[in-house]
Structures are given as C-alpha cells and as structure tokens.
Design a protein around this nucleic acid. Structure first.
Lengths: 202, 202
DNA sequence: CTAGGCCCATGACGGATGTCATGGGTGACT
DNA sequence: AGTCACCCATGACATCCGTCATGGGCCTAG
C-alpha cells in the first residue's frame, strides 16, 4: 500500500526534482503535479491523493488558502506546506488553515519522506526551530486596514496612490500607516511594511 | 565516462531533490554539494567536478561571483546558473562572469540534464525567452553611486540613514536618488529601487 | 588642453510624509 | 447604557523628500 502524493510548486524544476527525490522511496508515489494553486483541489480529487505538498508562493491561489480549501473539501487529503520562507506568521496561519505539516526548504532532503509519512499517519509535523519562534512571537497586532495599506506601501507607492487603490482619503491612509509604524517600530512606511512581511503579517 | 557535477544551492531540500533528479541519468554523477557560495571553488577543486550548478542567491558569495571565481581559478570546471529569477541583467552578468549556461527554475525538469550535457560539451545554454528580453533591454544605465544608494533605499531607509551607511552627505544622496529615479521612471525612491532590482541592475 | 562624465556638496523651494488632536460612525462585549 | 476598539475623515504642523541650479574636484577621451 503506497502513499499517493500531489506536488504543487510553481517552479517546474523544483517540482520535478522533488518528484525524483520522493520516487526513491518505495512506499511513496507521486500521482499528480501542478504549478498553480487554483488547480490543486481539482487535481487532488481526480488523482485521489493522500497527501499534498504545497508551496506557499504560487500563482492563482496561495498555498495557505489551498490548504484551507483542501480541508473544507472533505476529501481525505492532508496537506504539508513546503516553503522557502520560515516566517513565524506563516506557520500559525498554516495550522489554522488545517494544514497537517510545515517544512522549510532548507531542511535536509532525507527528512522529507519521513515528514510525508508522519503527515499521512495523521500526525502533525512542524519545524522545531520555527515552532519555538512562533510561540515566542506575539500574534498579529495589525488591524485589517493597516494590513491593506501596508501591502500597498510595500512597493514604494505614494500616499495618494495607496489612497486611490484602497478607496480612502489620503489623510486616513496616513493615519493607518502612522499607527502601523508605531506597532512595528519603523520610521518609514516601507520599513514598517517590510517588518510586517518578515513576520508573515501582511 | 560520466560527467561529474557539483550542486550549490542554499536550500538543502532543493539541493537534495536536484541530486535525485540528476542521478536518474546514467551519464551524470553528483560528486559534491554545498550550501554556501564561498565553499564552491574549494569543493570543485577537491571533487574534480566537470560542471557546477549554481544558484544565484546564496550566503557567503553570490552565484554570479562564484562563476567568475571558477572561471579565474582555471580548473576545467564550467558553470551553469540555475536560478529562480529570470532578470535580464542577471543573464548578462552571468555570461560576462564566464558562466556557460543560464537556466530558470521553472523550465521543465526533463531539460536540465540536457542543459548540463551541453554545457559540459562546451556549448552555451541560455533560456531563449530570457535571451530575447536581454537583447531587447538596454544595458545598465546606472552609475556606481546610484546603485549604492538604491540598494540601501530598497528596505525603505530614510535619506539620512542611507547617507550614514554610504558615508555621504544627505543632499548628495538625494541627488543620486533623484537622478536614478529619472532614469528608472518612478516617483519614489523605493519604486525606483524595485524597478532596478527587477532588471537585475542593483 | 579641453570637453564631458561622474562624484561630492550646498542652498532653496514646493510638495509629500509622519504625527497629533479631534470628531463622528459602527459593531461587540459588559 | 456605557465602554471600547476599529473605521473614516479633517486640519495643522514640523520634517522629510524630490527637484533644480550651481560649483568644485577628478579622470578619461579627443
């Protein structure tokens, strides 16, 4: 009895390489590969996958959102997040979304197969260092609007640009930004926005 | 007679996966793996590698810089850049650094082995789409100082912060920024900095 | 030698930005 | 009913930022 896997990663090379890596294990079988987040649920259903390996950054749909969709879909398919960025906030969001595991891409290759098996067995798999960081770090202190304006501020847009995109007055945008900067401890919108992103709070 | 390969990528999982993928080919053999740029030349020498697969973003030393070092070292080791970002400027810099190939990480996995063989045979391997973009796009129009200040501006630092880090007067920093913004077509230092980064000009 | 490009710096000006005080509206919880 | 947090908005103020003009020093190409 083999474990049926689905791989979701936007980089075809990484996807293929992971497939090759996992195919070395006798009890694992890659039954589907997709490069977009919005194709995962469909593919998981038709391929009857047991475990989905999900990258976070994908076109179409966020890996974390995919995990939530899979959870809701009610297929018996568990999800394991495999991502580049070990942002504390991502872990929290992943587990809230119903993901069963969270692995960073710089963990040794030999541990991946074990992680997959543990997830399939119904256990939770979490990067220990990241878990500690996540417990230590506080929860997201930002309000919805603060997140909105910070997201727009990331690219260096001016206040009026942001205001136009969020349909707010310029003054209101500056208030939200100022408030966010107070919480995040930066002296510039962009600094604050980057700080928020590093925490996975965007 | 097999082709001896060295893999350099900071993400252990990707490194291992690529190793598994390439090990499927009979004529290829992975003889070394490193996770830092500054360990490549040493490892290439002792392992007598024929071809190095280099990621660009690595701690210690830039993949492009590694390619240059390998070229200068005079070992018979060619380098193939394997990277996430298809910035036009990266291709140019890679070829100037003496790299023999440039592959983006979202090319199909099946093509990687061929790329390696072509590089080993002394041929140049370039992503066609990227080559076209690189030919169309102009060369880096930024001066040294403009690059310096833009690099610092990326994170959203204030003018005085940048001035302190680059050991310049605040006014001079603003002049360089203004000049760069004129060339890059943004209305904010951060916009301009991001534009420059997208082109691989930083 | 001269022209041109890059570098550094200063001063000035208008507009953008960050901060603060203030006020009104909503919904949640006690 | 009252409190509190969040939302939106406005006005005012000091500072920061982007732009422009100007000038001097350095180097290279003509």
């Amino acid at each position: 009895m083999t474990i049926r896997l689905l791989l979701a990663d936007d980089q075809a090379l990484v996807r293929g390489a992971l497939a090759a890596l996992l195919a070395l294990e006798d009890d694992l079988e890659v039954v589907a590969q997709v490069g977009r987040g919005d194709e995962v649920v469909e593919a998981a259903r038709t391929s009857r996958a047991d475990v989905c390996l999900l990258d976070i950054e994908m076109p179409g749909l966020d890996g974390l959102a995919v995990a939530a969709s899979l959870h809701e879909a009610g297929i018996g398919c568990r999800s394991l997040i495999v991502t580049t960025f070990g942002r504390p906030g991502y872990l929290r969001k992943a587990l809230e979304s119903g993901a069963s595991g969270f692995v960073v891409k710089d963990t040794p290759a030999t541990e991946l197969a074990d992680a997959v098996r543990r997830v399939h067995a119904g256990l939770r798999v979490v990067d220990p260092a990241l878990a500690a960081e996540s417990l230590a770090g506080a929860a997201n202190p930002l309000t919805d609007r603060e997140r909105d304006v910070l997201r727009e501020a990331l690219g260096g847009a001016s206040v009026s640009d942001i205001a136009a995109r969020v349909h707010l007055s310029g003054g209101t945008v500056r208030n939200h930004l100022s408030s966010a900067m107070g919480k995040l401890g930066g002296s510039t919108r962009v600094e604050a926005a980057h700080a928020a992103e590093r925490q996975g709070w965007l």
